[in-house]
């Protein structure tokens, strides 16, 4: 670990040396770096995500998106730099951060051999929810998703689109204020993706910050702000409208290709 990098704490964090400083942002990264041997997967990235924002994290395969997300979630330790989630240092307060975030990967992370309700009960249980809370929340969630009558069906029997929404539901079950979604829509049909994004909008309207990586450029258009990662660095970051203006692209697809090629 390189401690020299921490000396350059961002302005918002200067007042407090403690890790509970930059609370103005949901996610804040300062020269965040991760190396694997000689390979630098994430190379001094800076970013700031505001609460309630839908922040799109774009990049080609191997650009370092997943590595960055894994550091924010406490799954990986940074090699250098620092980041704060809700003002909590990912180096020092990873355990506290875990209570406040939800995470969903492209693998969906559901137990296929458990029923829908058992999955929700399990995820609620490991976050320390009471039995009554689990019952209440799962009823609400399953009603919303129209899955109430399938609650005792095995998860393996669900179509992919439903599984994906159920995975989002269980990642949200403990009501986190920030949601990290790592390519949540890969392999899902356009209709299911559309419904999924409606769920994301709803969460955002209710104040949840959504940090999402994606390969689909139409999804990038739905984000409040977008960053494009190239070889471990952030090559561009702004709202989709600004990016299109700046890079002179008709849509995000064109912008993405232009950014990646330069």
């Amino acid at each position: 670990m390189i401690s020299a990098d921490i000396d350059t704490v961002p302005k918002t964090a200067l007042d407090n040396t403690d890790s509970s400083a930059p609370t103005d942002f949901a996610v804040l990264a300062n020269k965040l770096t991760r190396r694997f041997g000689n390979f630098t997967a994430v190379d001094h990235i800076d970013l700031a995500v505001k609460p309630g924002e839908i922040f799109g994290f774009l990049g080609a395969n191997g650009a370092g998106k997943t590595t960055a997300i894994r550091m924010f979630c406490g799954l990986l330790k940074p090699s250098g730099g620092e980041a704060w989630v809700h003002g909590l240092s990912i180096k020092k307060k990873a355990e506290v951060i875990k209570r406040k975030i939800g995470y969903m990967s492209q693998k969906f992370s559901l137990y296929n051999d458990l029923t829908i309700y058992e999955n929700l009960e399990f995820y609620g249980g490991i976050y320390g929810l009471k039995k009554s809370e689990i019952k209440e929340r799962s009823k609400e969630l399953l009603d919303n998703m129209g899955l109430q009558e399938y609650r005792n069906k095995l998860t393996s029997a669900l179509p992919l689109g439903f599984k994906q929404r159920l995975a989002l539901g269980s990642a949200m079950f403990h009501r986190p204020s920030i949601l990290f979604l790592d390519e949540p829509t890969s392999g899902v049909d356009p209709v299911a993706r559309r419904i999924f994004w409606e769920m994301i909008y709803e969460l955002s309207e209710n104040g949840t910050t959504v940090f999402v990586t994606t390969h689909y450029m139409d999804e990038a258009e739905y984000c409040d702000r977008v960053s494009i990662m190239v070889k471990g660095r952030i090559a561009a970051m702004d709202s989709p409208a600004e990016l299109k203006k700046k890079w002179n692209g008709a849509n995000m697809q064109e912008v993405f290709l232009k950014v990646v090629e330069t």
Binding site: L75, K98, K107, S109, Y123, I126
Partner: peptide, 8 residues
């Protein structure tokens, strides 16, 4: 991985 991002 899902268990590891949880507080357990």
């Amino acid at each position: 991985e899902q268990l590891m991002v949880s507080p357990i």
